[in-house]
Design a protein around this nucleic acid. Structure first.
Lengths: 351, 351
DNA sequence: GTTAGCACTCTCATCTCATAAGTGCTAACG
DNA sequence: CGTTAGCACTTATGAGATGAGAGTGCTAAC
């Protein structure tokens, strides 16, 4: 069934108004402020009809109308008025990423911070899955105290390191050699492939089998997601939104965001097809609290994933602002990472 | 003025009772449950006197008594009944640290988690200051894309790394050489000394001065505390304590713990003399919220600092439990880190 | 020094009541 | 047939009012 233009208009007004004020919207206020050519009674009829269609709900008879999750979805897809960020905000993004250290952990932190600051919501970020990353460099460095440090760098500039126990009698030279052999064996391989070549590699190491075992275990452990890869910024921002004057909502919210596992699940199921993903209430994901929404974007540049980022906040979220911020941050990232890769490429040629 | 034994006893009862129940303590309940040989009127007189001495306060005339910060302090120093953890808790600590990866970041995370789990309060941890750490290993690894990875390991097993831009024309061999030179120059030096030798070192590098500049900048940056070194665990635990049924308290608390800077300041001013440090309300530290207490312990083993850890929670905190947990965690850490160093020592000799 | 007794204070939950906001329905209008 | 004015109905909200309960301070007697 096609919705009449007037219904669409009214629905848009209700959602806009509710997002801005957090107050249920009445027929009177619509007729007075936005649709001056009809009476409140007419609006009332339309509202009743929209309620029947499932777009609006009432807390109680005399409480005005509030959008349903379905209304928010429709709003995002068809009603929301597009428009870009202010100069100030664009500038802020620009400056935030200028001259940033370029490993993934720092990137995740600054992206998350920027998103939280600009949207005024709590932001969540998670770096790219190490899983399918190719090992670009791997080295074993002597620590001189019975341990060596295993360091790897992946294509997407993810860093991982572990201490590896060194057997008595293994000299620094031995270690250097082992390091070179390991580099030959693993560079260019994806972390997920390590387990496939395990047997083969171990066979090559007669003498220092034990070391190799530890190295392989470490590499395998890098494919597992880590709590510390999930970054949360601006938890306190929820207090800027009136739904969190209520202690139970706060409790609920804080419990969810305290569990990095849960957070990773909520923002983590990457759907590369969709750039921006909106989950409204628990309809779309049972791990999202009923009264919350989660908007995420998965970024990539030059074919490399840069992770998934988003905001979590009240279902009455400023979707337009949030989506616009996510889009612009994405563009900015593409810009700087793209440029950097060009520069790198040049270097490569010259060498 | 010396306090009478009965006053001490009554004060102890009030603090114990209030810590357990969160309900202001009345003269009647004391006389009935704990001091059956005197009447409530007698207790009443003593309570009035303790109030005059500054140990107790009342919210309102008919509200029973509540300990003042001064009372908590006195309680901790003189009244609190000592006693160790349950077998179960001791076991938990034991198991938690067994077979843990041994770099500092992971250690900080698990220590903080253990403390939060056992105490049921929000826990904060911060690793040792990198500032005075000696560089044990330093290496520059080629990444083959116009960047190199600078990695350092310090005496206390702190890891730091940065990407360093490599000028066109610098080959992998050049890099290897540079890495060796850098190792010779910096190994054994404290990070805080780097700035002192800056000029001297730069003089040695004619050709790759720029690289060296970046290396030194990176090293200098490692002395600065980083947000990510402050670890927070169990923020949601505050909801287990009734003072945080009140939204304003939650807001206050969450705002403080959201700022890593603030947290670092609160738990950070290390006083090596004192093993366990208790800050009660804002009397002892203006950054601590009025209704909160912070108990911290600074750990070290084998002469190396292991960081500062603690809990932050309501001023009505189970100080005995918290202090006992912190003490036992300290002992456990000494145990495992001590052992590990012995083992390392042996290796050293054998090599 | 201790205690019983009692007046006093303050909180808290409950109830009532009036007000305000908003709706749904009906009947009239163009 | 869509639109509108009018009105009865529902519900939240905030302001008293009230009574019970808890705890204290004080006084006088032991």
């Amino acid at each position: 069934m096609k919705m009449s233009d007037r219904k669409r208009k009214i629905l848009q007004i209700v959602v806009d108004e509710y997002i801005n004020t957090a107050v249920p919207v009445s027929s009177k206020s619509i007729a007075e402020k936005h649709l001056t050519d009809v009476s409140s009674a007419t609006v009332r009829n339309e509202l009743a009809s929209l309620e029947e269609l499932g777009y609006l709900t009432q807390f109680h008879t005399s409480g005005g109308r509030v959008p349903s999750p379905q209304a928010y979805r429709f709003y995002i897809e068809e009603l929301m008025e597009k428009g870009n960020l202010s100069e100030k905000d664009l500038d802020y993004i620009e400056k935030a990423f200028a001259g940033k250290s370029n490993d993934v952990e720092h990137l995740v932190r600054s992206v998350s911070k920027v998103i939280s600051e600009l949207t005024d919501y709590t932001s969540v970020g998670i770096g790219p899955h190490a899983d399918e990353e190719k090992i670009r460099n791997i080295a074993l460095l002597s620590c001189g105290d019975g341990n060596a440090l295993l360091v790897i760098v992946t294509g997407a500039r993810i860093l991982r390191d572990s201490f590896i126990g060194i057997p008595e009698g293994m000299t620094d030279e031995d270690l250097d050699n082992a390091s070179r052999v390991i580099a030959k064996l693993f560079e260019g391989k994806a972390l997920s492939e390590v387990k496939d070549v395990e047997e083969e590699v171990l066979a090559e190491f007669g003498q220092y089998r034990q070391v190799m075992h530890e190295v392989i275990d470490a590499l395998k452990s890098y494919t597992r997601p880590r709590d510390e890869d999930v970054v949360l910024t601006g938890a306190e921002k929820i207090f800027n939104h009136p739904e969190y004057d209520d202690i139970d909502n706060v409790k609920n919210f804080l419990t969810v965001i305290s569990s990095k596992d849960k957070l990773a699940e909520i923002i983590g199921d990457e759907n590369d097809e969709i750039q921006i993903n909106v989950k409204i209430g628990s309809c779309d994901d049972k791990d999202v609290p009923e009264d919350c929404s989660v908007v995420t974007a998965t970024y990539s540049a030059g074919g490399k994933s840069l992770g998934t980022y988003g905001v979590i906040g009240p279902i009455r979220m400023d979707y337009h602002k949030v989506i616009t911020v996510l889009e612009n941050v994405g563009k900015a990232l593409e810009g700087i990472v793209g440029n950097k890769d060009n520069k790198d490429g040049k270097h490569g040629k010259d060498e």
